[in-house]
């Protein structure tokens, strides 16, 4: 018998534990089933490959998919290098208890807890108005980058710190430069943490609505460039279900697409990072 499984005679406590677990699974299953039942019928190649019509009641979501992917792309391209740099600075060049390190970490932890709508307002004021990017995919992506940076940095920093000291010593004793040990030993060692950060951050970003309403806007046309406004899937779902009477069916279908997208992102990230871990990052 599995020694982790509760014994049959645990009585009330066992019953409560199992009930809680069953409840959580049931809620998740209900949510997925609801979206599948209401959304699956609408999904077709046409839905994925045409533009929305009648404010989204009819037609598909192609421009919205494209905008979503562009916003995510901008977000990750902007966030990853900054997160890597900051995490390396914090984990490798800042003593854990130094005033500077503590200050940066405290600031990041506070930022990680800031509601996304505040990031939206900041993004609007800074990227859209002050930098003059307007309502655009660029503004939206950069705002999301700010939003997920604290999470990415903290997970990456933890991952780098978790590298065993003996690997650093062994690398130094072989006369390896810091850059070489970082590329081949320390960063691959932090890969699982990078994966966790990307999944959490990417998941948060792809499902984000509030921060995007103020920055990348509502326009559901196909974006011509990164400076065009573009509607993200989550904004589309919000708009269809709240502002468009008769938009519920397509809202469900869009939600299903969003979940599948999230799933694909998870699986590919996991694949890439596990490959990276095996072979080392070859630069």
């Amino acid at each position: 018998m599995n020694r982790l499984a509760p014994a049959k005679n645990e009585g009330f406590a066992g019953f409560v534990l199992w009930s809680v677990a069953a409840f959580i699974v049931a809620v998740f299953a209900w949510l997925m089933a609801d979206i599948l039942i209401h959304g699956a019928a609408q999904i077709s190649w046409d839905f994925l490959s045409t533009a929305p019509e009648k404010a989204g009641r009819r037609g598909g979501i192609l421009p919205i998919l494209v905008s979503t992917l562009l916003i995510m792309g901008v977000c990750l391209l902007a966030a990853l290098p900054i997160a890597l740099g900051t995490a390396i600075l914090l984990a490798e060049f800042t003593p854990e208890k130094s005033a500077f390190g503590r200050m940066v970490r405290r600031a990041l932890d506070v930022l990680a807890g800031v509601p996304s709508i505040v990031f939206g307002l900041f993004g609007n004021a800074f990227f859209s108005v002050y930098l003059g990017l307007g309502f655009s995919i660029l503004s939206g992506g950069l705002t999301l980058a700010c939003m997920i940076l604290p999470l990415l940095i903290r997970t990456l920093e933890a991952g780098l710190r978790a590298n065993p000291a003996r690997d650093r010593l062994a690398a130094a004793a072989l006369g390896l430069s810091y850059g070489a040990s970082l590329r081949h030993i320390l960063l691959p060692g932090a890969a699982p943490a990078l994966l966790a950060g990307l999944l959490l951050g990417g998941g948060r970003a792809i499902a984000e609505t509030a921060a995007l309403v103020y920055t990348s806007g509502y326009v559901d046309r196909m974006p011509g460039s990164l400076l065009d406004s573009g509607r993200a899937l989550s904004v589309h779902i919000f708009d269809l279900s709240m502002n468009v009477p008769g938009g519920d069916q397509n809202a469900y279908a869009s939600a299903l697409v969003l979940i599948v997208l999230l799933f694909i992102v998870n699986v590919t990230t996991a694949g890439i990072v596990s490959r990276w871990r095996k072979t080392g990052l070859a630069i």
């Binding site: 065993p164 130094a172 030993i185």
Partner: peptide, 30 residues
Amino acid sequence: DVIQLRRRIGMIFQNPAPFPFSIKKNICFP
């Protein structure tokens, strides 16, 4: 040049510290 110095004076530790990649890369990468 401390890198050259460490190349000429190698070191072995109490706990074996191979890098977490292949046997071949452990030797060829340095």
